Amino acid sequence: MLNAIIMDYTEIPEDASWLRQQPYPVIAYGKQAITANADVIVPDLAAAQKLEKNIQSAPVAAMTLVQVLRSTELLPPELGLDVESLAYSTLQSGEEFAAWLKTRGDEILLPEPEGPALLLSRTGGKVDAVMNRPQLRNSVTVEMRDAWVEALELLDADDSITEFTLRGLGPCFSTGGELAEFGTAPDPATAHWVRSVRSPARLMAKLSARITCHVHGACIGSGIELPAFASQVVAHHKTYFQLPELKLGLIPGAGGTVSIARRIGRQRTALLVLSGRRINARTALEWGLIDALED
Protein backbone atom coordinates (compact mmCIF):
# COMPACT_ATOMS: atom_id res chain seq x y z
CA MET A 1 0.00 0.00 0.00
CA LEU A 2 1.37 3.40 -1.00
CA ASN A 3 1.70 5.77 1.98
CA ALA A 4 4.25 8.28 0.67
CA ILE A 5 5.85 9.44 -2.56
CA ILE A 6 9.66 9.53 -2.47
CA MET A 7 11.49 11.33 -5.25
CA ASP A 8 14.87 12.79 -6.07
CA TYR A 9 14.20 16.51 -5.91
CA THR A 10 15.51 16.99 -9.47
CA GLU A 11 12.70 14.76 -10.79
CA ILE A 12 9.84 16.61 -9.10
CA PRO A 13 7.62 18.50 -11.58
CA GLU A 14 7.84 22.28 -11.50
CA ASP A 15 4.10 22.78 -12.02
CA ALA A 16 2.93 24.61 -8.88
CA SER A 17 -0.35 22.66 -8.87
CA TRP A 18 1.33 19.23 -8.90
CA LEU A 19 1.78 18.91 -5.14
CA ARG A 20 -1.85 19.77 -4.42
CA GLN A 21 -2.90 16.85 -6.63
CA GLN A 22 -0.98 14.30 -4.54
CA PRO A 23 -2.98 12.78 -1.66
CA TYR A 24 0.10 11.33 0.06
CA PRO A 25 3.10 13.01 1.70
CA VAL A 26 5.72 13.87 -0.90
CA ILE A 27 9.29 13.41 0.35
CA ALA A 28 12.07 14.99 -1.71
CA TYR A 29 15.69 14.02 -1.15
CA GLY A 30 19.03 15.43 -2.23
CA LYS A 31 22.03 17.11 -0.64
CA GLN A 32 21.21 20.49 -2.19
CA ALA A 33 17.47 19.89 -2.43
CA ILE A 34 15.27 22.95 -2.79
CA THR A 35 11.73 22.61 -4.10
CA ALA A 36 8.34 24.00 -3.10
CA ASN A 37 6.65 20.92 -4.58
CA ALA A 38 7.38 18.63 -1.64
CA ASP A 39 5.97 18.26 1.85
CA VAL A 40 9.33 17.33 3.35
CA ILE A 41 12.94 17.64 2.21
CA VAL A 42 15.66 15.31 3.52
CA PRO A 43 19.34 14.95 2.53
CA ASP A 44 19.33 11.42 1.09
CA LEU A 45 17.27 8.36 0.18
CA ALA A 46 18.03 6.60 3.48
CA ALA A 47 16.57 9.52 5.42
CA ALA A 48 13.50 9.49 3.16
CA GLN A 49 12.96 5.77 3.75
CA LYS A 50 13.29 6.23 7.50
CA LEU A 51 10.61 8.91 7.35
CA GLU A 52 8.43 6.61 5.25
CA LYS A 53 8.68 3.96 7.96
CA ASN A 54 7.31 6.43 10.51
CA ILE A 55 4.49 7.33 8.14
CA GLN A 56 3.53 3.66 7.84
CA SER A 57 2.72 3.62 11.55
CA ALA A 58 -0.06 6.21 11.06
CA PRO A 59 -0.60 6.77 7.33
CA VAL A 60 -3.99 8.49 7.66
CA ALA A 61 -2.67 11.00 10.19
CA ALA A 62 0.41 11.62 8.03
CA MET A 63 -1.69 12.22 4.93
CA THR A 64 -4.01 14.52 6.86
CA LEU A 65 -1.07 16.47 8.24
CA VAL A 66 0.39 17.39 4.86
CA GLN A 67 -3.03 18.21 3.44
CA VAL A 68 -3.69 20.57 6.34
CA LEU A 69 -0.27 22.23 6.05
CA ARG A 70 -0.78 22.79 2.33
CA SER A 71 -4.10 24.48 3.12
CA THR A 72 -3.16 26.55 6.16
CA GLU A 73 -0.19 27.97 4.25
CA LEU A 74 -2.70 29.78 2.03
CA LEU A 75 -5.13 30.91 4.74
CA PRO A 76 -5.21 33.64 7.39
CA PRO A 77 -4.55 32.27 10.91
CA GLU A 78 -8.17 32.18 12.05
CA LEU A 79 -9.27 30.12 9.04
CA GLY A 80 -6.18 27.93 9.29
CA LEU A 81 -7.18 27.08 12.85
CA ASP A 82 -10.63 26.04 11.61
CA VAL A 83 -9.09 23.64 9.09
CA GLU A 84 -6.71 22.21 11.69
CA SER A 85 -9.50 21.63 14.19
CA LEU A 86 -11.76 19.93 11.66
CA ALA A 87 -8.93 17.63 10.60
CA TYR A 88 -8.00 16.89 14.22
CA SER A 89 -11.61 16.02 15.03
CA THR A 90 -11.74 13.67 12.05
CA LEU A 91 -8.64 11.82 13.27
CA GLN A 92 -10.07 11.56 16.80
CA SER A 93 -12.75 9.27 15.36
CA GLY A 94 -10.25 7.19 13.39
CA GLU A 95 -8.70 3.78 13.96
CA GLU A 96 -5.16 5.09 14.47
CA PHE A 97 -6.14 7.20 17.46
CA ALA A 98 -8.34 4.38 18.81
CA ALA A 99 -5.35 2.04 18.64
CA TRP A 100 -3.24 4.45 20.66
CA LEU A 101 -5.97 4.83 23.29
CA LYS A 102 -5.86 1.04 23.79
CA THR A 103 -2.12 1.17 24.44
CA ARG A 104 -2.58 3.92 27.01
CA GLY A 105 -4.44 1.54 29.27
CA ASP A 106 -6.99 2.26 31.97
CA GLU A 107 -8.13 5.69 33.07
CA ILE A 108 -5.36 7.73 34.64
CA LEU A 109 -6.22 9.68 37.79
CA LEU A 110 -4.65 13.11 38.06
CA PRO A 111 -3.55 14.50 41.43
CA GLU A 112 -5.75 17.08 43.10
CA PRO A 113 -4.70 20.57 42.00
CA GLU A 114 -3.16 22.94 44.53
CA GLY A 115 -3.78 26.63 43.96
CA PRO A 116 -4.73 28.27 40.68
CA ALA A 117 -3.47 26.73 37.45
CA LEU A 118 -2.13 30.10 36.31
CA LEU A 119 -0.58 32.61 38.68
CA LEU A 120 -1.17 36.20 37.56
CA SER A 121 0.52 39.37 38.76
CA ARG A 122 0.49 42.89 37.39
CA THR A 123 2.89 45.79 37.59
CA GLY A 124 1.74 48.84 35.67
CA GLY A 125 1.05 47.79 32.12
CA LYS A 126 2.81 44.43 32.46
CA VAL A 127 1.11 41.15 33.39
CA ASP A 128 3.13 38.07 34.32
CA ALA A 129 1.42 34.69 33.96
CA VAL A 130 3.07 31.59 35.41
CA MET A 131 1.78 28.06 34.86
CA ASN A 132 1.45 26.49 38.29
CA ARG A 133 1.23 22.75 37.74
CA PRO A 134 4.86 21.59 38.03
CA GLN A 135 3.77 18.19 39.35
CA LEU A 136 2.07 17.63 35.97
CA ARG A 137 4.96 19.24 34.09
CA ASN A 138 2.48 22.02 33.27
CA SER A 139 0.53 19.79 30.90
CA VAL A 140 -2.35 21.55 29.19
CA THR A 141 -5.33 20.08 31.02
CA VAL A 142 -8.85 21.41 30.59
CA GLU A 143 -8.22 23.42 33.76
CA MET A 144 -5.01 24.90 32.34
CA ARG A 145 -6.62 25.61 28.97
CA ASP A 146 -9.47 27.51 30.61
CA ALA A 147 -7.03 29.48 32.75
CA TRP A 148 -5.11 30.51 29.61
CA VAL A 149 -8.34 31.57 27.92
CA GLU A 150 -9.47 33.67 30.89
CA ALA A 151 -6.09 35.41 31.15
CA LEU A 152 -6.00 36.11 27.42
CA GLU A 153 -9.56 37.42 27.50
CA LEU A 154 -8.38 39.88 30.15
CA LEU A 155 -5.55 40.95 27.85
CA ASP A 156 -8.00 41.32 24.97
CA ALA A 157 -10.36 43.47 27.05
CA ASP A 158 -7.72 45.74 28.62
CA ASP A 159 -5.71 47.89 26.22
CA SER A 160 -3.71 49.31 29.14
CA ILE A 161 -1.87 45.96 29.36
CA THR A 162 1.08 46.53 27.07
CA GLU A 163 3.02 43.36 27.82
CA PHE A 164 1.87 39.85 28.73
CA THR A 165 4.64 37.44 29.73
CA LEU A 166 4.09 33.70 30.10
CA ARG A 167 6.36 31.25 31.95
CA GLY A 168 6.12 27.84 33.62
CA LEU A 169 7.07 26.66 37.10
CA GLY A 170 9.10 23.51 37.64
CA PRO A 171 11.51 21.53 35.46
CA CYS A 172 9.89 22.42 32.14
CA PHE A 173 7.60 24.89 30.42
CA SER A 174 5.01 22.32 29.31
CA THR A 175 4.80 18.75 28.06
CA GLY A 176 1.68 19.63 26.06
CA GLY A 177 -1.80 18.20 26.18
CA GLU A 178 -2.52 16.03 29.22
CA LEU A 179 -2.61 12.49 27.82
CA ALA A 180 -4.93 11.32 30.61
CA GLU A 181 -7.63 13.59 29.16
CA PHE A 182 -7.23 12.53 25.53
CA GLY A 183 -10.35 10.91 24.16
CA THR A 184 -12.60 12.21 26.93
CA ALA A 185 -14.63 14.60 24.76
CA PRO A 186 -18.21 13.37 24.20
CA ASP A 187 -17.66 13.20 20.44
CA PRO A 188 -15.41 14.73 17.76
CA ALA A 189 -17.99 17.35 16.78
CA THR A 190 -18.17 18.65 20.36
CA ALA A 191 -14.38 18.67 20.53
CA HIS A 192 -14.29 20.87 17.42
CA TRP A 193 -16.85 23.21 18.99
CA VAL A 194 -14.71 23.53 22.14
CA ARG A 195 -11.56 24.27 20.09
CA SER A 196 -13.54 26.92 18.23
CA VAL A 197 -14.94 28.80 21.24
CA ARG A 198 -12.45 28.01 24.05
CA SER A 199 -9.19 28.11 22.18
CA PRO A 200 -6.04 29.75 23.59
CA ALA A 201 -4.59 29.53 20.07
CA ARG A 202 -7.15 31.92 18.59
CA LEU A 203 -6.53 34.49 21.30
CA MET A 204 -2.75 34.03 21.12
CA ALA A 205 -2.86 34.66 17.37
CA LYS A 206 -5.03 37.75 17.79
CA LEU A 207 -2.98 39.25 20.64
CA SER A 208 0.49 38.04 19.69
CA ALA A 209 2.03 41.53 19.43
CA ARG A 210 1.77 41.97 23.22
CA ILE A 211 2.82 38.44 24.24
CA THR A 212 6.27 37.13 25.18
CA CYS A 213 6.89 33.52 26.21
CA HIS A 214 9.89 32.37 28.24
CA VAL A 215 10.29 28.60 27.82
CA HIS A 216 12.62 26.01 29.34
CA GLY A 217 13.10 22.26 29.62
CA ALA A 218 10.61 20.24 27.61
CA CYS A 219 8.33 22.04 25.16
CA ILE A 220 6.25 19.25 23.66
CA GLY A 221 3.13 19.44 21.48
CA SER A 222 0.97 22.34 22.60
CA GLY A 223 3.90 23.29 24.85
CA ILE A 224 5.45 24.88 21.76
CA GLU A 225 2.42 25.20 19.46
CA LEU A 226 0.90 27.89 21.68
CA PRO A 227 4.09 29.86 22.49
CA ALA A 228 4.92 29.95 18.79
CA PHE A 229 2.07 32.43 18.29
CA ALA A 230 3.80 34.98 20.56
CA SER A 231 5.74 37.86 19.07
CA GLN A 232 8.75 36.83 21.15
CA VAL A 233 9.75 33.35 22.31
CA VAL A 234 12.83 33.27 24.54
CA ALA A 235 14.24 29.85 25.47
CA HIS A 236 16.71 28.59 28.03
CA HIS A 237 19.70 27.18 26.18
CA LYS A 238 18.91 23.61 27.33
CA THR A 239 15.32 23.65 26.09
CA TYR A 240 14.15 21.05 23.59
CA PHE A 241 11.12 20.93 21.31
CA GLN A 242 9.10 18.04 19.92
CA LEU A 243 5.85 17.34 18.05
CA PRO A 244 5.01 13.66 18.83
CA GLU A 245 1.36 13.64 17.71
CA LEU A 246 1.83 11.13 14.88
CA LYS A 247 2.44 8.35 17.44
CA LEU A 248 -1.09 9.02 18.71
CA GLY A 249 -2.62 8.89 15.25
CA LEU A 250 -3.14 12.66 15.38
CA ILE A 251 -1.69 15.92 14.09
CA PRO A 252 -0.87 19.07 16.09
CA GLY A 253 -4.22 20.29 17.39
CA ALA A 254 -3.38 23.34 19.53
CA GLY A 255 -2.66 25.58 16.56
CA GLY A 256 0.73 24.20 15.55
CA THR A 257 -0.03 23.79 11.86
CA VAL A 258 -0.54 27.56 11.86
CA SER A 259 1.85 28.95 14.49
CA ILE A 260 4.86 26.72 13.92
CA ALA A 261 4.46 26.60 10.15
CA ARG A 262 4.46 30.39 10.01
CA ARG A 263 7.73 30.45 11.94
CA ILE A 264 9.71 27.65 10.31
CA GLY A 265 7.75 26.84 7.15
CA ARG A 266 5.47 24.05 6.04
CA GLN A 267 8.26 21.60 5.18
CA ARG A 268 10.15 21.79 8.46
CA THR A 269 6.89 21.56 10.39
CA ALA A 270 6.00 18.38 8.52
CA LEU A 271 9.51 17.04 9.19
CA LEU A 272 9.12 17.57 12.94
CA VAL A 273 5.78 15.77 13.04
CA LEU A 274 6.56 12.93 10.63
CA SER A 275 9.94 12.20 12.23
CA GLY A 276 8.91 12.86 15.84
CA ARG A 277 12.47 14.12 16.39
CA ARG A 278 13.53 16.50 19.11
CA ILE A 279 15.39 19.67 18.24
CA ASN A 280 17.49 21.64 20.69
CA ALA A 281 17.33 25.35 21.39
CA ARG A 282 20.19 26.19 19.05
CA THR A 283 18.48 24.51 16.10
CA ALA A 284 15.18 26.13 17.06
CA LEU A 285 16.88 29.52 17.00
CA GLU A 286 18.49 28.86 13.61
CA TRP A 287 15.13 27.79 12.17
CA GLY A 288 13.21 30.72 13.68
CA LEU A 289 11.04 28.66 16.02
CA ILE A 290 12.32 30.83 18.86
CA ASP A 291 13.70 34.36 18.85
CA ALA A 292 16.42 34.37 21.51
CA LEU A 293 18.31 32.26 24.05
CA GLU A 294 18.79 32.98 27.75
CA ASP A 295 20.58 31.37 30.69
Rank of each mutant, 00 (worst) to 15 (best):
G221E: 08
P227L: 01
Y240I: 06
A228Y: 06
L226A: 01
V234F: 11
V234P: 10
V233S: 10
E245P: 04
L243Q: 08
H237A: 09
A230E: 06
H236Q: 11
L250R: 15
I224R: 00
E245V: 07
K247W: 03
G249W: 00
L250I: 12
K238P: 00
Y240S: 10
T239R: 01
G253F: 11
Q232V: 11
L248P: 01
L226F: 04
L248Q: 08
P252V: 05
S222K: 04
Y240Q: 08
F241I: 09
K238I: 00
V234S: 14
K238C: 06
G223F: 01
I224Y: 03
H237R: 10
P227W: 02
E225L: 07
I224T: 04
G223K: 00
H236G: 07
A235R: 01
H236R: 12
H236P: 05
V234E: 14
A254D: 15
V233R: 10
Y240N: 09
G253C: 07
P244M: 01
A230C: 13
K238L: 09
G223I: 00
G249V: 02
I224L: 05
K238F: 09
A235F: 08
L250S: 15
F241T: 13
V233T: 14
E225K: 07
A235W: 08
P244A: 01
I224D: 03
L243Y: 09
F229C: 11
Y240W: 15
Q242N: 10
L246P: 15
E245W: 09
S231L: 12
T239E: 03
P252W: 11
G223P: 01
Q242S: 08
G223T: 00
A230S: 12
G221K: 00
S222N: 05
P227G: 04
F229V: 10
T239M: 03
Q242R: 06
K238H: 12
L248C: 08
Y240A: 03
A254R: 09
L243K: 04
L246R: 11
G249T: 02
P227M: 02
Q232L: 13
I224M: 04
P244E: 05
A230H: 05
G253A: 14
S222R: 05
L250P: 14
P252Q: 06
S231V: 11
Y240P: 03
Q232H: 15
E245M: 08
G221P: 05
G249Y: 02
G249S: 02
E245Y: 13
V233M: 10
L226Y: 02
Q232D: 13
L246H: 13
V234L: 12
G249C: 02
V234Y: 11
P252G: 07
E225D: 15
V233C: 11
V234G: 09
L246Y: 14
H237V: 06
P252D: 07
Y240D: 08
P227Q: 03
Y240H: 13
A254C: 15
L246D: 14
G221F: 08
H237Y: 11
Y240E: 09
L248A: 11
L246F: 13
K238T: 12
E225W: 06
G223A: 00
T239C: 07
A228P: 10
L248E: 10
Y240R: 09
P244C: 05
